[in-house]
């Protein structure tokens, strides 16, 4: 049986800068990395592999350069990597993305039964947290988001028991397999690749599934299949740091000013 991790390659947003005069993004030299949330999803899939002897497959949709991220996943311990890449997949929003990923998982399932799909909570470039639920809905899998602990996967009874972290609450949920589990970062501490695995991953074959393989309706994928369109992009206003009052001679006044600011910014409620 398979455990499938969905990962995305994203620009390292912490290295993105906005040109203060033109308001455009300066992306020069900004590297692409595996979405930090997805590293935890991959790690959890590898732990399920170690715990239950599942075969770990990692799937990613993106341009051909996504191969780098998939090789990293192989270096960390995934058994197989599938790259979903086609011009027709480009420009997709979460709706169109979840279709391609869901169809890829369906194809994997035809070959070998899928028990669990693990996704990261969200991506750092899009921040939507929508792809995981999209996949679950399309495939009719149990949907468990915000999972911070997988207690047990019972392959025989076809059940999974996991803990979800919702606001200030924790709830333990039992759901039938197959399940889509979207994990939070606190769920695990990712492993580090060993050198022999890195070397192995460098030479490994990565399956490329383009739309000739996938045969999806072109009107439902990529830009055409996207329900949302980005209309305009602009740079946000940035608050500059300010020193409030004179805290040395008049701490009360400084405190009043700060509390005022926090109330104004909707950070503090009375």
């Amino acid at each position: 049986m398979l455990v499938v991790a969905c990962v995305k390659q994203v620009p390292d947003t912490t290295q993105v800068e906005v040109d203060p005069t033109t308001g455009t993004l300066k992306r020069e030299g900004v590297p692409f990395i595996m979405n930090p949330f997805d590293i935890h999803a991959l790690e959890e899939s590898l732990r399920l592999k170690d715990r239950y002897g599942l075969r770990a497959v990692v799937v990613s949709m993106g341009p051909p350069s996504t191969e780098v991220t998939l090789r990293k996943a192989l270096a960390l311990g995934a058994d197989e990597a599938v790259l979903l890449s086609d011009r027709a997949f480009g420009g997709a929003d979460t709706l169109a993305t979840s279709l391609v990923l869901a169809e890829a998982i369906r194809r994997l399932d035809e070959r070998e039964e899928v028990a669990v799909v693990v996704c990261g909570r969200q991506t750092i470039d899009g921040d939507t947290a929508q792809v995981g639920p999209g996949i679950a809905t399309r495939l009719g899998y149990s949907q468990l988001t915000l999972v911070d602990r997988i207690d047990e996967v019972d392959l025989r009874a076809r059940k999974v028991r996991a803990r979800r972290k919702v606001g200030g609450w924790h709830e333990t949920v039992e759901a039938p397999l197959p399940a889509m589990i979207a994990v939070v970062r606190e769920i695990n501490r990712p492993r580090y690749p060993t050198v022999p695995r890195r070397l192995m991953a460098e030479e490994a074959t990565i399956a490329l599934w383009n739309n000739e393989v996938m045969k999806l309706d072109e009107n439902k994928i990529g830009l055409k299949g996207s329900a949302t369109q980005v209309r305009r992009i602009f740079s946000p206003e940035r608050a500059k740091g300010e020193i409030l009052g004179d805290g040395l001679s008049n701490p009360e006044e400084a405190a009043h000013l700060l509390i005022g600011k926090l109330i104004e910014k909707d950070i503090l409620y009375l």
């Binding site: 620009p11 947003t13 912490t14 993105v16 800068e17 906005v18 993004l25 750092i124 470039d125 899009g126 921040d127 949302t228 369109q229 980005v230 209309r231 305009r232 992009i233 602009f234 740079s235 946000p236």
Partner: peptide, 11 residues
Amino acid sequence: AFGGNIMATIL
């Protein structure tokens, strides 16, 4: 979007 570096208007 992009980690808060830019704002996007979406339709």
